[in-house]
């Protein structure tokens, strides 16, 4: 078999896509290009009946062929495919009614070994770093039977022993009903879940080319590992082709990995390309 190279964003998107079951309702929150790419990918492969709600869930879209995502015209692209425009209240009504079917990928600033997440603030009471806020994560994380997080940067400062401020609720909770939930985490190094019995994070599969040591070195707590480690199935030719050529040829997904000046330059580069295509 020919071994084709892929990047960590591509294997992450593939893993995210594979979590979506045919007939699920996939919701995109704010600023999550990898999430929307994974929804389109699922719809174009194993889950053609996926319903997609974009722009914080407000815009219900319909598409047969996988569309190309846009940075500059995100709302315009969604509107072009819209069958209905809702309100934020209605988004929550859909969530409450269809809890079992909802897939929503959140990106936490911190996640701990119990699956608690934080997008509020980093640090102690004395010195705090203020983050933009979690928007709706804390509302729904504890409600979903399946909660999904994705972490493009698997680093110690993201995978922490205890989050500094609990937004999305993990499994270390007194409420029985909260403990039966499934929490899945997809990072650049592997796929993880919160084990029901121990309520601790456990490795489900490790991405090709990654060693257990890589995970240990980049995690602030001990991740439970099975005796025999399973390897993540790599993206197929079709999945790679769809991501690279159809859904995200401008490589918008890469922005989720970059920071500082590199990110700004990549962003301006994408914007210029989009502008030259439209005018």
């Amino acid at each position: 078999m020919k071994l084709r190279k892929f990047t960590s964003d591509e294997i992450m998107i593939t893993c995210m896509s594979r979590e979506i079951r045919n007939g699920d309702i996939a919701i995109q929150g704010l600023t999550t290009p990898m999430a929307i790419i994974s929804y389109y990918l699922a719809k174009a492969t194993h889950a053609p009946q996926t319903t997609i709600m974009q722009l914080a869930g407000n815009i219900l879209t319909y598409t047969k062929a996988p569309p190309q995502i846009s940075l500059l015209f995100n709302e315009f692209e969604a509107m072009r495919r819209s069958v209905h425009i809702g309100t934020q209240t209605e988004v929550y009504e859909v969530i409450f009614k269809r809890l079992e079917s909802i897939v929503e990928f959140f990106r936490p600033a911190q996640i701990d070994m119990f699956g608690n997440t934080n997008n509020s603030l980093i640090g102690s009471d004395i010195s705090k770093l203020r983050l933009p806020g979690g928007f709706g994560i804390a509302d729904v994380a504890a409600l979903y039977p399946r909660t999904f997080y994705y972490c493009p940067r698997h680093e110690k400062r993201v995978f922490v022993e205890n989050v500094d401020h609990i937004g999305g609720l993990g499994l270390r909770t007194k409420s029985e009903s909260h403990q039966r939930r499934d929490i899945h985490i997809i990072s650049e190094l592997g796929v993880f879940e919160i084990e029901h019995e121990s309520r601790r994070m456990r490795l489900s599969s490790i991405h090709p080319g990654i060693k257990i040591e890589d995970i240990k070195e980049n995690t602030s707590f001990e991740i439970l590992t099975p005796e025999k480690t399973q390897q993540t199935s790599p993206p197929t030719e079709l999945e790679l082709q769809l991501i690279r050529e159809k859904i995200d040829p401008l490589n918008i997904r890469r922005l989720e990995y970059l920071s500082g000046k590199t990110r700004e330059n990549a962003l301006l580069n994408i914007l210029d390309k989009e502008l030259s295509l439209t005018i």
């Binding site: 704010l30 600023t31 705090k128 203020r130 806020g133 979690g134 709706g136 962003l267």
Partner: peptide
Amino acid sequence: DAAYVGLEILGFAPNFRKAVE
């Protein structure tokens, strides 16, 4: 009072962050 203050894909809202911190 807000559920989020930031510039989406561009990053933090600089004056918000400074004033809250």
